[in-house]
Design a protein around this nucleic acid. Structure first.
Lengths: 187, 187
DNA sequence: GAGTCTCCATACATATGTGTATGGTCTATA
DNA sequence: TATAGACCATACACATATGTATGGAGACTC
């Protein structure tokens, strides 16, 4: 029988619960109920709730956050990496990310994890922009705007009209990655 | 003696607590402790916690959310209203707004209030953009981008370098409200 | 096959929250 | 100045969470 639970099982359930019910549900008692076991299991795998939270944030960085950039860096031709990045980032809602950002407002540990991810992505976007011809100063500024917009998009789960949303993304691309220009900085 | 408390006093404390400690602290017991009274007062002014939450959201919409647009519409010349809007919106952190957005992830009532405000502001921004010469379709798209960026800015309380932030805002203005062009849409 | 180790259930003490019932203390007012 | 009403304290029953202590069921080892 493999009805034994591992720490990873708890973490998986943690991400699921976080995504659907938010960080307020990340407690031993409700989680155990969701897993169909008692809290005895929880407190065997984790010292306390704080330790579980820390482990969950590590787990998230590993399985969710790092993948996006990695996927983009390997596959496809690198010239339109920026355009592809925008399209994929603004494609789905990324509910888990949104939940973690809400969490980050209340728990310093989560705040720290989000900040780390943000820094990584920001500098990556800036490097893409520089590679496409923008001067460093404007590349940083545009990366900031892009990332702000991404965060705003992720957190406003308002069901926008499909077309309106597509238009906004197209406009975004037109701004930072116009086609047919090799050196967008040299206007 | 005016040490009697009114419902408004509780709401003021509610906004303060929300801003500093987040929506998780919006409970009768901690609030009463912060006010230096017992929960007896709370339950006299409000039927229950849910009623307090609803009242608080109404109060917020009244005192905080509606002011921004109103202030812009009255004072100043209307030509650079857009530029002024961007500068003021991206000036301070708007911690209360951020807290409410976090709240909106967990309570449908808060979600509803935020959505209403978002709609109002979005359409106002779009109208400003149209007035400055952008064609309607692109005005909507840019309004969306601007607002996404605003939300992202508000929620990432990361201490950005002052200059970097100014650069980003300048870039934002350059994108949607370039100087010396009367018809930015007609490129 | 006795012992050990892993994993979980159960029970307990404690903390913090809710909502209600009841009574007390001011203040205005007739 | 008696009285009604606004405002608050206190006490109770209840719910949900935490962490610990203890013990039990299975598998694995020697």
């Amino acid at each position: 029988m493999t009805d034994q639970l591992s720490a990873t099982d708890w973490l998986k359930q943690g991400l699921k619960t976080l995504t659907t019910s938010g960080f307020v549900a990340l407690k031993a008692e409700p989680l155990a109920k969701a897993m169909g076991v008692s809290r005895g299991s929880f407190y065997w795998h984790f010292a306390d709730v704080a330790a579980f939270h820390a482990a969950l944030l590590d787990y998230w960085r590993e399985v969710a956050a790092e993948r996006v950039i990695a996927a983009l860096e390997t596959e496809g031709r690198s010239e339109d990496a920026l355009r592809r990045l925008i399209r994929t980032a603004f494609d789905t809602r990324l509910a888990t990310e949104a939940a973690i950002r809400g969490w980050a407002m209340h728990e310093p540990l989560a705040r720290k994890a989000v900040d780390a991810i943000d820094r990584r992505r920001m500098s990556y976007i800036a490097s893409l922009l520089e590679k496409s011809g923008w001067p460093p100063s404007r590349a940083t500024a545009q990366a900031q705007i892009l990332y702000w917009a991404f965060v705003g998009f992720t957190l406003s789960d308002r069901q926008l009209a499909r077309k309106q949303q597509q238009d906004a993304i197209a406009e975004l691309i037109r701004i930072v990655a116009p086609q047919g220009r090799r050196q967008p900085g040299k206007v």
